[in-house]
Each structure stands twice: as structure tokens, then as C-alpha cells.
Amino acid sequence: MVHLAGKVCIVTGATRGIGRGIALQLAESGAKVYITGRTLEPRKGSSLGGSLRETASEAEARGGTCVPIQCDHTSEKDVERLFEIVKNENDGQLDILVNNAYAAINAIFSSLGTSFYEFPPTLWDDTNNVGLRNHYICSVYAARLMVPRKKGLIVNVSSVGGLQYLFNVPYGIGKDACDRMAADCGAELRKHNVAFVSLWPGPVATENVIDTIQTNIESGRNDDREVPKGYADKDMLPTFKICETTEFAGKCIAGLGSDPNIMAMSGKVVTTFDLGRKYKLQDAHGHVPIDMCSLKFALQHSGHTWLASITPSFIQVPKWLMWLSANRFY
């Protein structure tokens, strides 16, 4: 069902992974979607693929419209040019911005199991320049278009790493700040009827994740200093292949973009599972992805696989208990 017809969107970092999936779903829902990334044309010899042209071609094959804009999100001039193009081509209209661009995958995997003080301080920039910093800059330019029109939605793609330790120190700080950005920007934008949310996808079977697991299996690596627990385990491959696809987050954002009560969620963290349940969504394989707030998920990812196997998936860990587990007050 086309329910974003006439809307103008920007999805940053849409050459592959979650960004590509979000762009495809927004375009399929009827929106005109501007997509950004560093790679405009298909790369020869790349097993993972990933270019703006490929994403745009797939969107068009589904009957949607994607406009590729090559953009280096470390460059504020490139970002400013992106928003000028969108403004000029659409009479100042921008309805949805999805802050997804992220360039830290290699930095994350290279630093796993190593303490922050053992790496150069530049690990911070590698992790958060195209991410936290760029999300803020894009949000500034987006708000300048949305506020005069008194409507719009900004989404930061974040993760549970903003609540508890995950991967490395700069990663957690960056994701926590993305959540706080949604809260604080949402507070200032509320009077202008512009919503800002932070989206937590669950485990997602991106091309990079699947490729990393497969590579680690083939190389026989299972060292916690090299890969996360379970990422070199052959049993994890089928698990990731049946979790969220890269397009489920896109279905959720399409739902947010057409929700008449979106302001009730502004400033909040929302999960893909909760949005899927709210909007009655199914993933590409016809299943509902696992709830990362479920007891089953918590047991599985804390190493209690046997207990997880006999625990019903509908038993949830209350969100207030999750927040208390990260309580920072003495």
C-alpha cells in the first residue's frame, strides 16, 4: 500500500545494509527518496556490492523513486550541498530524514576485545565522525527545512549499545549520544510539530555481518580478542539469517512517517520490534523478528543457550528494568 506518496525523504548511507533497506522500503511506499553514500557506481570485484546506482535501480524496479547523491559525510560542504539540492528541487520540502550513515564497521571489528587505552585516540573519530557528528549536522540542516513547514520526522539509527557496553567505548558513547540527541532535539522541535526519534533495530543480517561471520568460520578464528562472542561460531550463521532483514527497519520508518500520532513518540527510543507490532508488520520472510527485550533474547546473548531454547519468546524483560540495569547513579 502506497502511504508516503508526495513525501520527500533523505536516507544517508544507503549503498548497502540497513540504509539500503530503509531507502527501498520508503521508495516502495511512494516517497521520493534521496540516497547518499561515497560510492556512486558499482564496484568491480566487490563480493558485497554496494553502490547508490544499484540501490536506485532496485527501487525503480519496484516502482519507486530514488535519487542518488554522492556525498562524503565527513565533509560538511558535501552535506550542505546535499540539503541545498533537496531544497531547490522540492520547493523547500523535506518530510523525513534518516540518519544512518556509519563508517566504523572496520574500526569496530579491529578493536574488539581491546581496551580503549590500547588504541590511538583517533578510534573516536573513526567511530563517531560519520555517525554521531554527521547525524547532528544533518539534523541541523533538516530542521531548517522542516520547522518553517511545521512538520517532519528525523530518525537516528541507533542501537542497544547506547544502554549497555557493546563492541568498544567510542561505539557506546556515540549510540548513547544519538539517543540523547533525539530527546533534546525533540524537546526543542516539539513546538514546531517536528518529531525526532532514535530507532533501535534488533540483530540485523547485513551483508557485512554475514560476510564477517562466514570469514571467521572459514578461517577458524574464535578468539574473543578478534571477534565478538559467537561471531565465529557456525551456529550463529543460521541465527542471523532468520533475524531482521535490512528492510524491516525501513518498513518501521514508513509506518512512523505515516503515523498521525507521531509526536507522541518524539524524543523517545523506539525499537523495530515494538513498531512492527504496532503497525502489524512482517519481515521479508513473512516472520516477526525476535524481540531484543525478550527474556529469550537476553538468555541467548548472555551465553545461556539451553535456557533460551526452552524459554517462550513472549516473556519480556520490562523496559524500566532494562533502564535500571544501566543506572549510573551511586
Rank of each mutant, 00 (worst) to 15 (best):
V2F: 13
A5L: 11
K7Q: 13
C9N: 05
I10C: 03
G13M: 02
G13V: 00
I18N: 02
G19C: 08
R20G: 01
I22T: 01
I22Q: 00
L26R: 06
E28Y: 04
G30P: 03
A31P: 02
Y34P: 01
I35A: 00
T39D: 05
L40W: 03
S47L: 13
L48C: 07
R53C: 07
E54D: 13
E60W: 14
A61M: 08
C66S: 08
T74H: 05
E76Q: 15
L82P: 02
N90M: 04
D95H: 11
L97I: 12
A101S: 14
A103Q: 15
A107Q: 01
A107W: 00
F109H: 13
F116A: 15
Y117E: 14
E118N: 09
P121F: 15
P121M: 13
W124F: 13
N129Y: 11
V130E: 00
V130H: 01
G131F: 04
L132W: 03
L132Y: 06
L132G: 00
Y141G: 00
A142Q: 02
L145N: 06
P148S: 09
V160G: 06
Y165C: 14
N168V: 03
D176P: 04
M181H: 14
A182E: 03
A182R: 02
G186K: 00
A187V: 07
A187S: 14
R190W: 12
K191Y: 05
N193D: 15
G202D: 05
N208K: 12
V209A: 07
D211H: 10
I217T: 07
R225Q: 12
V227N: 02
K229H: 12
E244V: 10
E247C: 11
A249H: 01
G250F: 03
I253C: 04
I253H: 02
M265V: 06
S266A: 13
G267V: 06
V269D: 00
R277L: 13
K278Y: 08
Q282T: 13
I290Y: 03
C293F: 15
S294P: 01
F297Q: 02
L299K: 11
T311P: 00
S313R: 07
I315E: 08
W320C: 14
R328T: 15
Y330R: 15
